Structure formats: structure tokens, C-alpha cells
Simulated scan of single mutants.
Amino acid sequence: MAVDYYTDVLGDLFIHEMNIDFISKSTTLAFGYHPESHQGKTHELKFTGVVWQEFRNFNCYNVLFDIEVTEDFAEFRSREKDYLKSMKGYFPIDILNEIEKDKSLHYFFIGTSVGVEGFVICKEASVKEIGVGIKKSST
């Protein structure tokens, strides 16, 4: 399971916003420094082609610890077995078979030091530096 890129770029930042667009099947998380620092947002992580997502443990402060990603459905199923078992009666019977067959999907696991955690199953993800709160060097 890979953690390097997403964790290197976004680790220890605060999740400021979460926007879900049901029409375009995308979810965007905006990251930045501590909200009380008033330095604004610095990065966006956008998931596109979202087929399933689950977020839990929302808090007033949500500090990202790491983001792990895999393309292995069996690993997803193993990691989320308790969730899948508890939700068994709430989603279509064939949905897991359909997801397993789609080899273009990526499974992202969002871990935090405090606050929101969860997973996103999607086609793509990208990080964009938005620069609002990025400190520029004056040299």
C-alpha cells in the first residue's frame, strides 16, 4: 500500500472543507494550516469518478495523518470488513462484485490524528496547490 506522495504533500495539514458533487461524482477536500491561524487553504485533493465513499468521526479540527492507496480490492475488503459487515443490508447485493471487477479503481484510506477518517473508491485523484495560505519566500 502506497502512502508516500499524498502523505508527504498533505500530512499534518488540517482538513478545512469537504465538497461532494453527486452529479460529477467527485469529492474535494481542501487542506490548510490550523484554522485559527487565518492562513487559509493551501491544497485541494480531488477524487473523481467516485463510486463509493465513507467518512466518519467528524470533529471541529480534522488533522490528516496519512493517506494510503491501493488498487487491490481484496486489501480494501480486508481493511473495511467490519464496515462492510455492518452495512450489508444497506447497499445493492451486487455492488461489491461490480467494484471488484473494475480494475481501474483506486482505494484511498484517509487516516487522521484527530477527526474525520474514511475511504474513497474512485477512478482518479489529484492534488492541486491552491496557494492561498502558502508562505512565499521574500528572497
Rank of each mutant, 00 (worst) to 15 (best):
102 D>Q: 02
62 N>C: 05
79 R>K: 15
93 I>F: 11
81 K>H: 14
39 Q>T: 03
90 Y>M: 12
66 D>H: 05
29 L>I: 12
82 D>G: 03
36 E>Y: 06
83 Y>G: 04
96 L>Y: 02
79 R>T: 14
18 M>Q: 15
42 T>C: 02
98 E>G: 00
113 S>N: 09
31 F>E: 00
105 L>N: 00
112 T>C: 14
84 L>F: 03
37 S>M: 05
29 L>A: 05
39 Q>W: 00
66 D>P: 01
113 S>M: 06
30 A>D: 08
37 S>L: 07
76 F>A: 04
78 S>M: 06
43 H>G: 02
54 E>D: 12
91 F>I: 08
96 L>A: 03
43 H>R: 06
27 T>D: 09
53 Q>D: 13
21 D>R: 10
63 V>Y: 01
18 M>V: 15
44 E>N: 15
58 F>P: 12
64 L>Q: 04
76 F>I: 05
38 H>K: 10
31 F>Y: 06
54 E>V: 12
72 D>K: 11
107 Y>C: 07
63 V>C: 02
48 T>Y: 05
71 E>D: 14
91 F>Q: 04
68 E>Y: 11
63 V>F: 00
103 K>V: 08
70 T>H: 07
23 I>S: 09
68 E>Q: 14
94 D>E: 14
46 K>Y: 05
50 V>E: 03
77 R>Q: 15
71 E>H: 12
36 E>L: 10
53 Q>W: 09
78 S>G: 11
76 F>D: 03
103 K>C: 01
106 H>K: 15
24 S>W: 05
95 I>R: 05
24 S>G: 08
39 Q>K: 10
